[in-house]
């Protein structure tokens, strides 16, 4: 089959690759671009380990063709920290022990980013509902919820300072 050309901006950097049309976005990100922070868990759009942000939307990159994302701007877990400083969501997972083995964590971080962008002050119930598309098989979800509340508080405090 003819290859197709795909151009993406990932974490601010532009990439062009020739891929088979059937190449999944997650495979291009991991194998084509070498950004292996994005994980493949279930590979059936259930577990959310492969969540990345495409043009502002959290998506499961195992269920998107790379060519569907042609021309888009993507943020992966590698793009969260800046200047050596962890993003408040990452810091929350660190401080609240929001992970054990860490396999699901990149997906949780990216989904949480979308959650907090849409709802900066979510209740525990809202966090649990909005993260239904992400599975954690070891810590359970209590500390993940605490980590996201930590990030919400930190982000709103930063916002308040910025607004002063």
């Amino acid at each position: 089959m003819d290859k197709v050309s795909v151009t993406l901006t990932v974490n601010g950097q532009s990439y062009s690759r020739e891929v088979e049309p059937r190449t999944l976005l997650v495979h291009l990100i991991r194998e084509g671009l070498g950004l292996t922070g994005t994980h493949v868990g279930c590979d059936t759009s259930s577990c959310g380990s492969c969540t990345v942000i495409v043009d502002g939307l959290a998506v499961k990159s195992c269920t998107l063709l790379a060519v569907q994302a042609d021309g888009s701007e993507i943020t992966t877990v590698e793009g969260l920290a800046s200047n050596g400083e962890l993003h408040p969501i990452q810091e929350g997972f660190w401080e609240m022990h929001g992970l054990q083995c860490g396999f699901c964590t990149p997906g949780f971080l990216m989904a949480s980013l979308q959650l907090l962008e849409r709802n900066p002050d979510p209740s525990e119930e809202e966090i649990r509902h909005e993260l239904e598309g992400n599975y954690c098989r070891c810590t359970g979800y209590h500390n993940i919820v605490r980590a996201i509340r930590y990030a919400a508080d930190k982000l709103s405090a930063a916002e308040a300072v910025a607004g002063d």
Partner: peptide
């Protein structure tokens, strides 16, 4: 339907 990520797409 589905979950947040699925509803996005």
């Amino acid at each position: 339907i589905g979950d947040m990520q699925v509803r996005n797409v």
